[in-house]
Design a protein around this nucleic acid. Structure first.
Lengths: 420, 420
DNA sequence: AGGCATAAGTTGGGGACTACAACATTTCCA
DNA sequence: TGGAAATGTTGTAGTCCCCAACTTATGCCT
């Protein structure tokens, strides 16, 4: 019997996000010759659970239309999800139209995942339910720079705290971790996290053993992109580029044909290290003129003369700042526009979503960035692209990391939920 | 993971083709739509036909192992493909191992597609069979620059010539077109082909009405990438970047998680217009220092003082050229290395495949390019990436374009073949 | 208030597909 | 020459979905 879900880590990691990606290497399959009819059933359950999770409540009628399946089929499938306690059916809300009211199907928010985000000075731990509901979060400050051991301790402590305050009926599906660094997708190892100064940390296994829960690890920008694409500015978009500006640099990720861009090892999407200015300053990556050295919060703080206390300008720049600040914002807006145009040439996205201080920069200089993009990119590509600010605020990484943990459940509701 | 090759992400490019059969409208919602039992059958047939098409002959036993399906199921499926005349079963070759010999299943090379490649001075038309066999090709020269009408006439003439010489039993599945320019994937319109000076040409419909055959249009680099990924240097690779250097510029394409990168409108992959040198010369795209202005065959010809007569240096550079040539090759090798490093940061590919004069450049300066890549890219990404020369020669675009035409058949053998 | 139209859930029959097991066939090797 | 290994073939059972007919629930109109 294939014990789907927890024990097969490769399964879950390749199935990250919404899409099923088959591989052509067929050697591994011979053991678990999958029953195909059964798989049809699983796919339909998966599609249905994914819909109510992502789109919120839906009536059974809406589910019928959305899936194209027969009413009777939908009824049976929903019943199965209800029996697994993954969704709940409630009576229809008052009078919306003629006809017999259709029951409302809602993802059970008490099916939860823990979300972990280790950063330089703290670990943030949250608990997130199906539907993207953040039930709670705690921030556990580090003493000095965050070591791996500290991170593990904080993870355990945070989960413990949240566990105590959680509703009794909560069902924990797993742990999702968003790490600011390169994460190898095959085994969830943090190959290199520059700001944490971590190298080759087998984080997935460490957290999995510490917590006893199935764990998934992802790059923070990738995780944020997933969150925005499912619940935020990228809703319903299949091709988008996400750029996040934090105090420590620019992270990037892309959604390509509805699937997140992973690359051969999971390292894809280092969009902060694409060239925007050959004459620029040296980047810590060894190159010169990377996007993240030219469009950079520290350089803005240097102009304003402020110390960096972490969070300023991640949402807004002052409209009445100094001339020097305005000049620097102009410069960075131009460079960002060039960088975006470059990415548009590569990805032809439907939308470009900006988070962190890039969102603030876009708020401050929307037309300037749009002009730089229009000037640089091929017209057919630039014409249709939407530039948008990220919509999910402080819960961005929590929701996204939880999404990592939910992926296995969403892909195979019966296998994962009934095995628990 | 129970499912192997037969559960790949549905290909958007083929979805549009299905719609003309008046199929279910579930195509548009394929990401979330429900799955049916008949889909299972279709996917399995598709997987099997795709395998014999791409890998060449396989025994039924190999198919059984590769799909993980039951022997009886495979027998029935193969029988169906034989009945449709899409594959042929032949007796096993002499004694390869113990046991009853397994019949050899081979894609029927007489199931063919026409491949069209309009270029500045000519249209090349070919006829390609399943399995990637090029049965024949003709080149029809243009008078002056190639107009759309000329291209259509040449297409018709070329198909006519090839038709006359084709085996009687050939079954024509459609037409695939490789165009040097931006092609909108939704309707096969050539939005802009700079070197042909075409703008907004509804090429798919024009050729479809002219020939009476279902037609697919793609960008030439994308088409070449598909060919290399299926039959050439990118065999078995799911994440690769392809760069092709022609006399008129650099085309690019990427394979991402086993699917070709298309973008929202199909324009993705303009890798020749990514920045490599802010101080570089102006590009026809309006920017400065694009990869294709810095790594450029014309600039090499300018150094050697030769006139451009089309085909030189697309395979080899002379080892004993002038000092100026060598200096220029060095410079271009360095720039190409930087550009590749940039793309590696973005895509984290398993392989980078170089075609056209870039292949010749890599042959001439392998270590120099490798060094530039290693110096610029993150070590974890650069370490594993293979840089390779394209393997398919003059048939590259023929095979790739035919692949466009075969896509619908490969995805739904019964629907397409029995409808013919 | 009571029918009528609309919309949707429910139930049972039928079709399509795959798995499995038992049996038949072919080849290699001792 | 017979046994082992590998494979094809056939019939049964199980799963899943669709369809049609029936039932239930609501809004609207007379």
């Amino acid at each position: 019997m294939p014990d789907v879900g927890y024990c097969q880590r490769e399964d879950v990691s390749t199935a990250q996000h919404l899409s099923l990606k088959g591989e052509l290497s067929t050697v591994t399959a011979s053991r678990t010759a999958g029953s195909r009819n059964e798989h049809t059933h699983r796919r339909n359950l998966s599609a249905m659970l994914t819909m109510v999770h992502q789109r919120g409540s839906m009536t059974r009628a809406e589910l019928t239309r959305a899936t194209g399946l027969n009413r009777s089929t939908v009824g049976a499938l929903v019943g199965e999800l209800v029996a697994l306690d993954l969704v709940a059916e409630t009576d229809a809300p008052a009078s919306r139209s003629v006809g017999r009211p259709s029951p409302l199907v809602t993802a059970n928010p008490h099916v939860v995942a823990f979300a972990i985000n280790p950063d330089i000075d703290a670990v943030v731990v949250g608990v997130v339910g199906l539907g993207g509901v953040v039930h709670g979060r705690v921030r556990i400050a580090a003493q000095g720079d965050l070591s791996v051991t500290q991170a593990l301790d904080a993870t355990e402590a945070g989960i413990g705290q949240l566990h105590a305050s959680m509703a009794r009926e909560c069902l924990v599906m797993g742990v999702g971790v968003a790490v600011p660094g390169l994460v190898r997708s095959t085994d969830g190892t943090v190959t290199r996290a520059p700001h944490l100064e971590w190298t080759d940390v087998a984080l997935r296994d460490l957290i999995a053993t510490r917590t006893g829960l199935p764990t998934q690890v992802g790059n923070d920008a990738g995780v944020a992109m997933i969150a925005e694409s499912v619940f935020g500015a990228g809703r319903g978009v299949t091709d988008l580029v996400y750029l996040n500006g934090s105090a420590s640099g620019i992270g990037g990720a892309a959604l390509v044909g509805g699937a997140s861009l992973r690359g051969a090892d999971g390292y894809a999407g280092e969009l902060g290290h694409t060239l925007v200015n050959s004459d620029g300053i040296a980047c810590h990556c060894g190159r010169r003129g990377c996007l993240e050295t030219e469009v950079n919060l520290q350089r803005i703080l240097a102009v304003t003369g402020e110390p960096d206390h972490g969070g300023q300008y991640l949402e807004h720049f002052p409209a009445n700042g100094s001339t020097a600040l305005h000049a620097e914002l102009d410069r960075q807006a131009d460079v960002l526009g060039h960088g975006i145009a470059n990415l548009i040439s590569v990805f032809n996205p439907e939308a470009v979503v900006l988070g962190g201080f890039l969102s603030a920069l876009y708020e401050a200089r929307p037309e300037r960035i749009a002009q730089a993009v229009a000037a640089d990119a091929f017209a057919p590509l630039a014409d249709h692209v939407r530039i948008e600010r990220a919509q999910l605020g402080e819960n961005l990484l929590m929701v996204g990391a939880a999404e990592l943990a939910f992926a296995a459940l969403l892909q195979d509701p019966v296998g994962v939920a009934s095995g628990t």
